[in-house]
Write a protein that binds this DNA or RNA. Structure first.
Lengths: 214, 214
DNA sequence: TGAAAGTATTACCATTTGGTAAACAAAAGC
DNA sequence: GCTTTTGTTTACCAAATGGTAATACTTTCA
């Protein structure tokens, strides 16, 4: 068939491998992942992987960067929105996925969390995750900082508040994935609203201006 | 040598295997755990494991229950303390280990968290974790409920507050373990105080009665 | 056209891995 | 004491696994 765009350009192969790795990881889990499983998710034979990547370790490191890039690329920002609204949008994206309801959001989260936990046994993965985590938390912290500067939020340590929100999000996702608590993101959403956002608004501005409970 | 107490009583063997499994898991991580690794952590040969457990899967399930029992057994309660103090004690234990500074607390946490995450690929482990998690969260929720009943905490949903605290604790531990953020428990401690406890005390009772920031 | 470079397939393998079978030791029952 | 049961060791293995070498196909470009 038409080989004009698909299959012939070898640059695609690496992406194919990454997606195959994602699928295999998603089905078998990290601890039971065999190179063969990845091969079976591809059109091509599993040995091509060895041509493009230098063994399983190298593959996994590349994949980690791949899935992290995807995660960060899916975050949409709107710097002009009022801080409270902007914060809500960010948190919502983290808890429920990008707005355009990507089909595989929770599959990706599952893989992401498994790699995250595995980082405790792998210094290289830990380093990659640390850079990524700083960006994610920083992105939320910035919104809070902005809110404080504008006088919408009370004067508190934005790092701590940002870290707290990031932690709550992370825990809720882990709970949904590991324990099957499908309502965890929803609960986290409400808790962030009741305990964190409310507290941030405490003596900044009077609440009820733009719809608080949703 | 004296075989009066050690080695001859076979009931100990299963415990030896459990502790060897813990050590092996702690060193190699779940994904790289081989039966051989466990054997090398024991006095006896690795084949005894097959006599006492029905294969790797059975071993891991038993170990999961073992480490969960240990976790729950290490929690010390004092039903008579005032709710706020009692809550602090519980949270402190979860974040910094039992008071008597158990040597291997974080090693155990590391293994615990890895198994927790792995539960997303194993229905049996998920079920075991769910029962355990309910007890842990329930234990914190009870304290909050008690505080509300006594009028110390404001009237809010104790389930939500208990879940939130549990989530924050869990995330902080994961962050310390996976990212190496050694200050995560400390940050979580402060955040729980600033955002959750303060909020719970909001219109329940005037603060400053028994030393709030520690 | 045809050599060179790049990419994918087939065939193959050394090691590793979980697990078993038979021999051996030590209690326990009678 | 002798047999039976329980627990441990030694010797062994079939299957699985990550990886390689040689081969074939395909594109590039001189």
């Amino acid at each position: 068939m038409s080989k004009s765009e698909e299959g012939s350009v070898p640059a695609d192969t690496r992406e194919d491998i990454m997606e195959a790795t994602f699928r295999a990881l998603s089905e078998h889990g990290y601890s039971d992942l065999r190179m063969r499983d990845i091969g079976e998710e591809m059109e091509m034979t599993r040995q091509v992987i060895h041509y493009h990547y230098d063994g399983k370790q190298d593959l996994m490191s590349s994949f980690l960067e791949y899935i992290i890039d995807q995660y960060e690329g899916s975050v949409e920002v709107d710097g002009d929105a009022p801080p409270r609204k902007e914060l809500e949008v960010r948190v919502h994206q983290c808890l429920f996925g990008p707005g355009f309801e990507e089909f595989s959001h929770w599959d990706r989260m599952k893989v992401y969390h498994e790699l995250f936990t595995h980082a405790q046994n792998d210094a290289e993965h830990r380093a990659i995750f640390n850079e990524h985590y700083d960006r994610i938390r920083g992105s939320i912290t910035e919104v809070i900082e902005d809110g404080i500067d504008r006088g919408v939020f009370r004067d508190t340590d934005p790092e701590r508040a940002g870290q707290l929100i990031t932690d709550i999000i992370h825990a809720a996702r882990g709970r949904k994935l590991s324990l099957g608590h499908d309502d965890a993101p929803d609960q986290a959403w409400r808790s962030i609203d009741e305990f964190v956002v409310d507290s941030l608004l405490a003596d900044g501005v009077e609440p009820g201006a733009d719809g608080s409970d949703a």
